[in-house]
């Protein structure tokens, strides 16, 4: 019985791990931050690329996203878009705060990540690594699929 229980436990734990394999950047036990729905819009030639994702903060304290890095871009920025008199105003910001027990979506038409001076054009179907750096010194590696849209 003991042996079979151990086998069952191991099987279920591996199932739990496998079940989340596609959820890259997910928080493991005790880790307050997770990232989901990351993707990059395939950019037209010689245009910057926008990246989108949702950061979930399960901790009690707010945390700041302060930088993003990726091998495919020389520079990345966080841009805030605001509706203004029938148009969009975009401005660069140094950080995005994710409230405690909250989440922030970086999405099209809203605050989003900008990948500038691309070293190469990311193409539909590939997966690009992003490294998110936070104000408390932690960082999170996220896999962002590239798609048209």
């Amino acid at each position: 019985m003991t042996l079979s229980r151990r086998v069952l436990l191991a099987a279920l734990l591996s199932l739990a791990v496998c079940g989340c394999a596609g959820d890259d950047g997910g928080a493991s036990a005790g880790e307050p931050l997770s990232v989901r729905d990351a993707w990059i819009r395939e950019p037209p030639p010689c245009s910057p690329a926008a990246a989108y994702l949702t950061i979930v903060n399960r901790g009690a304290s707010p945390i700041e996203l302060v930088a993003v890095e990726t091998a495919i871009a020389e520079r990345t920025e966080i841009h805030v878009m605001e509706q203004n008199n029938g148009g969009m105003t975009m401005r660069r910001t140094e950080s995005v705060s994710i409230p405690g027990h909250g989440e922030v979506s970086l999405r099209s038409g809203g605050t989003h990540l900008m990948l500038l001076n691309l070293r190469r054009q990311p193409l539909d179907g590939e997966v690009v690594d992003l490294v998110l750096r936070f104000g408390d010194g932690t960082e999170k590696r996220v896999e962002a699929p590239v798609r048209k849209g």
């Binding site: 019985m1 279920l12 199932l15 959820d23």
Partner: peptide, 22 residues
């Protein structure tokens, strides 16, 4: 019964760890 409890606990863990993103 203990095996059943273990199964239920692990199932809950599975749901908790994967359910939130949706």
């Amino acid at each position: 019964r203990r095996t059943g409890f273990l199964l239920a606990t692990c199932a809950c863990l599975l749901v908790l760890s994967c359910g939130a993103p949706d």
